[in-house]
Design a protein around this nucleic acid. Structure first.
Length: 271
DNA sequence: GCAAATGTTTGGCC
DNA sequence: TGGCCAAACATTTG
């Protein structure tokens, strides 16, 4: 489940390894994940020289001198930098470089690999509609975004809405809400100023430890190494029945709309 | 062996 | 507008 910690880590690794490499060939095994016909995609990026890599929300943005290569890993997968002789068992897309290295991509369910012209990143609506990267916001900016939401917006729905703040997904959100002491279904409009500040801090405290460890254990880096953020580092997420780290009450798994949430019923009361 | 659940995102319906 | 469902169809768990 690639969210900010994994995406930002991958962007950093790619930035150290990819700039300057020239794409010599592109192999597409799953055309469905593209935004344009495979022939056009190959034509657009073959020969391109890679520039800086950045991220916006859950999207990786790889710049090249021939346009943007945009990647959304969906519900998880691998981005591996290796050679043709050591490819992973499964992949859906391979970029070969002129130095004989190659970047293979796999995602195990949904995922997108898009192309956008250099001067028209906005043509990709999925990216154009994204809100600011959640870790880039100042407290003041965060407060004004929160206050701009409608009266009926629930805390969890807000945090997951990529058009408001980008980068939080349904994995790290469990610990973020726990750290903030908020039930996922509480109304955003009922939060006091100090609760909004606490939520702001909780977002950082919930994401930064994993970011600093290269992402979660269930995702791998460009070289196949697992992330350093382990199950033991998770506070309440996926820990149904375990004691709450603060009060000892068993953590419960509840249904919140079409997603699940893990919460401490004592520390995160529904209001 | 089968059913259910799983990180994403969009679009359609009420 | 929000909530809910279905759709893209892989892989793991009970």
């Amino acid at each position: 489940m690639p969210e900010i910690p994994e995406i930002a880590s991958r962007a950093k690794e790619m930035n150290l390894a990819l700039p300057g490499k020239q794409i010599s060939a592109i192999e597409i095994l799953q055309p469905k994940c593209l935004n344009i016909p495979p022939e056009e995609f190959v034509e657009a990026l073959t020969g391109a020289i890679i520039g800086l890599v950045s991220y916006h929300g859950k999207w990786l943005k790889i710049s090249t001198d021939k346009g943007w290569f945009l990647l959304n890993m969906g519900m998880g997968g691998e981005i591996l930098l290796s050679t043709r002789t050591s490819l992973p068992a499964k992949y859906r897309l391979i970029f070969d470089f002129t130095d004989a290295s190659c970047l293979s991509l796999n995602f195990w369910w949904f995922g997108y690999a898009f192309y956008a012209p250099l001067d028209n990143l906005a043509s990709i609506s999925m990216i154009a509609k994204l809100g600011p990267n959640v870790l880039d916001l100042s407290l003041t900016e965060f407060i004004s975004i929160v206050q701009a939401q409608s009266a009926k917006t629930r805390v969890k729905a807000f945090l997951l809405d990529q058009s408001r703040v980008a980068g939080i997904g349904n994995a790290y959100i469990h610990d973020i809400l726990f750290l903030a002491g908020l039930h996922p279904l509480n109304l955003l409009s009922k939060l006091t100023e100090s609760e909004i500040e606490k939520l702001y801090s909780a977002i950082r405290d919930g994401l930064l430890p994993s970011l600093h460890k290269g992402g979660a254990f269930y995702e791998t880096d460009l070289y196949g190494q697992k992330g350093g953020f382990r199950m033991e580092d998770i506070l309440v997420g996926y820990r149904e029945g375990s004691p709450c780290p603060r009060c000892g009450t068993p953590i419960t798994k509840i249904r919140t709309g079409s997603t699940s949430s893990f919460t401490c019923p004592e520390c995160q009361p529904l209001r």
